[in-house]
Design a protein around this nucleic acid. Structure first.
Lengths: 233, 233
DNA sequence: TTAAATATAGACCGAATGGACTAGATAGGG
DNA sequence: CCCTATCTAGTCCATTCGGTCTATATTTAA
């Protein structure tokens, strides 16, 4: 799983802080086994360089003002090149780590970390692994798991579970975009019966029209049973 | 960040395979610094034991027939105890890893891995870290990132991006559950203008009523700009 | 500068929706 | 056996919604 050290790994750096950019470049050059083919202090030109040179890895600073690093990573991913992305950041912000990994970063290191750790991260990522220092890994997963809890908490089971079985069926069909007539024919009941059920649903969910009921259902996870892809447990 | 080795770490094991259960128990006892307080071959009693003994860590087998390990982990999380969960599995299935970590596992190890790695995982997890072997970490993040791509692909940007700015505003308000009158007063335009916009939206999204338009918008990620919590990039 | 796109608004009409009732049938729990 | 919950279905009426037009002012692009 180790890369071929006879070839230098080709690297592009994107960092709007010129001092830091040069510092990292110098560090990598001293190491001897890296070829920093290009550097850029702007996202746009940086992304273009990645497209042109298709390096093994690109280091992207996350703390840029305008089009932030997230956008850069996202665009690089969409190039369809085989370049791995390593995110560099001054902050160990859980949300930023989460989003960076989500858009395709293969690793995330803090600027405050020792240079040896940066080298280590680069090597791991180039050789196809994920590199997240354990502190950041912890942040990531806490955030990841918290999101599930929030989903659950917002699932106001009180109201939704107060629906009768038939009402659930009706709401389920409404959630698929059917109107009253369609619902009635699908359930083989009369149009007015559907209306009765729907009105009961409105009462129970405390909403005032069909669209709001559907929104309520979706936002409170009512339709997850059907979806059941990876959203639920 | 290291635990106090003067005290033995208290452990509960949940695994329906009695052979493996005993094997792990023996292994941990030989190690000397662990106290396997309880073992269980069923989820229900296992969860109860965790509730009762509140160990430092619980090892949960993921490959159980009935109520699977995911359910067990989920229930343990909901106990509100401070027990860390380490998932054990025979398979490195990306979906399973993803879901286990999502419901609260702090680590995931394969049964095929060396016992030293299991010990390592236990120590890391007890001391508050996340333990994912790099191969599994890779699987996890590939799955994690793929989910984003799927979201994007399903974002039929063709249709949604064909909406004018005003139409987007209107759709956004509809997505919040407002009716035409409410939309018109919020945008300071007449009721009929809203209707015109809405009809154009219907044409463009190829839907036939308000609820379907809202569903379309939500399912295709239209409302993520507003949410912008952690869902979007 | 013309043409196209956009935002505005109106009329008219039919269909769908929502509110407020009543009411019969059926099933289940106490 | 009675009471309650649920599912069913109806009426009446008002409101909203959706479809199809036309039309004007403004902006944008060619």
């Amino acid at each position: 799983m180790h890369r071929d050290f006879r070839k230098k790994a080709r690297i592009v750096l994107i960092d709007d802080n010129y001092e830091h950019l040069m510092g990292v470049k110098e560090l990598l050059n001293l190491e001897g086994c890296y070829d920093v083919v290009q550097t850029s202090t702007s996202v746009n030109t940086g992304v273009n360089m990645v497209k042109k040179y298709q390096p093994d890895i690109v280091l992207v600073d996350m703390n840029m003002p305008d089009k932030n690093g997230l956008q850069a990573i996202h665009e690089i991913q969409r190039l369809g090149v085989n370049t791995k992305v390593l995110a560099l950041s001054a902050y160990d912000d859980a949300d930023l780590i989460f989003r960076a990994m989500k858009v395709g970063a293969r690793g995330y290191v803090l600027k405050t970390m020792a240079s040896a750790q940066l080298i280590c991260a680069i090597e791991e990522v180039i050789s196809g692994k994920i590199y997240l220092p354990s502190a950041l890994s912890l942040r990531f997963f806490e955030y990841f798991q918290k999101s599930v809890k929030e989903e659950e908490n917002s699932t106001d089971e009180e109201l939704l579970s107060s629906l009768t079985q038939r009402e659930e069926e009706v709401l389920d069909l409404l959630t698929q975009g059917f109107g009253y007539n369609e619902v009635s024919s699908k359930l083989y009941i009369s149009n007015t019966t559907v209306k009765t059920h729907v009105n009961n649903i409105f009462q129970k969910l405390q909403v005032k029209d069909r669209t709001q009921a559907v929104l309520y259902a979706i936002r409170h996870g009512f339709d997850k049973k059907r979806k059941a892809k990876f959203v639920s447990i």
